[in-house]
Amino acid sequence: MGIDLRGDAGVVALIHAVRVTTATIGGDAVRLRPPRNRVDPRAVRWWTAQELLSFVPIVLVLAVLAMLIPGARQWLWLSAGVITVLGLASTLILPRWRYRVHRWEVTDDAVYSRTGWLWQEWRIAPMSRIQTVDSARGPLQRSFGLASITVTTASAKGAIVIDGLDHELAADLVQQLTEVTQATPGDAT
């Protein structure tokens, strides 16, 4: 179907095969290594609190309704039970899983992060392209002594967010990155 402007699909596949083979045989097959630093271990507790906050209020509301509305009682208890089980499971699993995945690194010329759990994402922003660096601390993060930093480039989609850093480390990073990026000429587009 369609017209293939690349010409013979077989040739293209061959080019691909050759390229992949040379990459492997030449010993230069590479992959992204994980960024060097883990986030602060307290992030696990912070994420746990977040998970709890995301389902406990709903369960409470359902429980109250179950006590007030006799007609729908068993359905309300049932849904409260299901949400509790799912919520507890994600509270136990997700924060630890995230902690194993979330990593970050700042070198002389780039900021590098890995986030996610099942779906993972690696982001790299060259230092020369960084436009702004902010740190943010929500009330919940603050109570765990944590902060997030956001590194934005001129791209609407290139922002790197590193969550769960020790708040003093975050402040230092912001300071350091701001100094480097201000020294860079141009508008980083």
Binding site: R19, V20, A23, T24, G27, D28, A29, V30, R31, L32, R33, P35, E105, T107, D109, A110, Y112, I124, P126
Partner: peptide, 23 residues
């Protein structure tokens, strides 16, 4: 996966290379 990061490294030298490791 391997060819993709190598391609990105080719396309924009000196950015990705420091984060790459041999397989």
């Amino acid at each position: 996966a391997h060819e993709g990061v190598a391609f990105a490294d080719d396309a924009l030298p000196d950015v990705l290379s420091q984060f790459l490791e041999p397989v």
